[in-house]
Design a protein around this nucleic acid. Structure first.
Lengths: 126, 126
DNA sequence: ATTACTGTACTATAATAATAGTACGGAAAA
DNA sequence: TTTTCCGTACTATTATTATAGTACAGTAAT
């Protein structure tokens, strides 16, 4: 499991929430595969330099929400979701797009400008 | 001052933080003008159905951060920022675009698809 | 059987977030 | 001058977030 350290301790967004989002994205994007084992609680906590209980909370909630399952004594694993992975991913994409568009609009930025901007980024990234 | 009710009480993001972001966006986008008076604390709290102290916190922090100033007995007002308004707005736009692109990429969505998607939205919104 | 690793379940503590309510003093209008 | 509006400053209480530490039981390898 690839682990970037994108956790911001000074963010107003709770740590457990930041970590949850990251794991969700990894599952929905296919970076984490069904039945793949996640980093053990204690190890992950050490890696992110947060308390073990914080990771416990993250894994527990992701279990409740259907993203993970646990085998006591063995670890946490990615659940093979019934719902189509791409469908869930597209749902998430739609919601982040909606939020992005709302914020951009609030900034007085038009959708035309957004498209123009992404085309520039597209060229740069080629 | 136009007020949409985009506050989500069940969000993991603290209320005061959500409200702060909304006001910042309105100032940077020019919806709120320099020296324009903001909604009084008690009234705003009632409108958003949050506690007055939450709004106190919001205004106080936005004061510290240079977005607002207060005239005790009169109200809070939008500070005339030294930095160019559009520049700050574009900086903010760049950062939210970066974050959006990162999340979309994590979901396995290409920039080509993003552009295609915005073009569809563009048509719908016309 | 022992050891190491793992999830799980606690207790305790501190900081932050949010609510509720009261009170004081400046500003401006009646 | 009195009233109303408004920022400011408190106290008190509750829930959430995060840390720290201990303990127990399942799993698997030595």
């Amino acid at each position: 499991m690839k682990t970037e350290f994108t956790i911001k301790t000074n963010s107003p967004i709770p740590l457990y929430e930041q970590i949850k989002r990251e794991i969700k994205l990894k599952i929905l994007s296919g970076i984490l595969h069904p039945d793949e084992k996640l980093i053990p609680i204690r190890e992950y906590a050490k890696l992110l330099k947060v308390n073990s209980n914080t990771i416990v909370k993250v894994y527990y909630q992701l279990d409740i929400e259907g993203y993970l399952y646990s085998k006591p004594g063995q670890g946490y694993f990615v659940r093979r979701t019934f719902v189509d992975k791409n469908k869930k991913g597209l749902e998430l994409f739609r919601s982040i797009t909606e939020e992005y568009l709302q914020n951009a609009t609030d900034l007085g930025i038009s959708i035309d400008y957004i498209i123009k901007n992404f085309k520039i980024l597209q060229k740069k990234l080629k």
